[in-house]
Computed example of a mutant assay.
Amino acid sequence: MEYEDILAALNVKQLNKLKDSNLRFSEILGLEIPFYDGLGFPPALIPIANSIGSFQYFGAFLYDIVDSKVSFVDLMIDDSELFEIGLNEKQFCYYLARRSLQDYLEEDPDISSEIYQLCSLLGVDEFNSLQTIDEQNYLRLDVFRSGIPKYFQTRQGGTTYGKTGFDLEAVAKLKRLKKSAVNFS
């Protein structure tokens, strides 16, 4: 089964449209779509994209296998950190659109038509307001009425549901042990 089929089975349909477009995601988002499958990721993550130049995945995180419930996350592999950036697909689409508008449009105004096309593919209608909106007002958009992802609430890793797919504390403990073993020898 392909990742796109898994996403469709989880009712994640808007994002599946991205793979068929001919947008230059590396230039308008700093992401590789479809993702590069060579970095390794936890089994609960269904990758959608990976960051260009860093070990980072963006994708759907299956936090409830029985009921097939997902949230959307940014997984930083080197730091073993998982940041919830969308409670649903629509919030994740807004996150991607805002990232593109704020991080890439300012650097290169010539890509505005591609970013507008991206927003359209993602189903994001607030193209003009997302360019100038601050974070406080961003989180007041209708798309966040159902709830605010944990990262935007606390600026900390993890998910709203408290499940991360792997034990971040155990990973941190192993890193400390490894570091102390190196210092010991």
Rank of each mutant, 00 (worst) to 15 (best):
D108F: 02
E106T: 08
D103G: 10
Y104T: 03
D110R: 12
L139M: 11
R99G: 03
L101E: 04
S112C: 09
L122P: 04
D134V: 08
T132M: 10
Y116M: 09
D110P: 03
S112H: 08
E106D: 13
G123N: 05
E114M: 10
D125K: 15
D108H: 01
S113K: 14
I115S: 07
E107T: 05
S129A: 08
E106G: 10
S112P: 01
R99V: 01
Q117F: 13
L130D: 07
I115V: 10
D103E: 15
S120Y: 14
L118S: 04
E126L: 03
L139T: 01
L139I: 02
E106W: 12
S113F: 13
S129E: 15
S100R: 01
F127I: 09
I115K: 05
L118A: 00
I115Q: 08
L139F: 05
I115Y: 03
E106F: 10
E106Y: 13
G123M: 02
E114V: 02
L118I: 08
N128W: 13
Q131V: 04
E114S: 13
E126P: 04
D134K: 13
E114R: 04
E106K: 14
Q117A: 14
L141P: 08
L118N: 08
I115R: 05
D103F: 12
E135R: 14
I111F: 00
D142C: 02
R99P: 04
S112Y: 11
Q136P: 00
E126C: 05
E106H: 11
E106P: 00
R99C: 07
N128I: 09
S120F: 12
Y116G: 03
L122M: 08
T132G: 03
I115W: 03
C119L: 04
Q102G: 04
E135D: 15
L130N: 06
E126T: 06
E114H: 12
Q117S: 15
Q136S: 14
N137F: 12
P109I: 02
L130A: 00
Q136F: 11
I133C: 00
R99K: 15
P109Q: 02
D103M: 14
G123P: 03
Q102N: 09
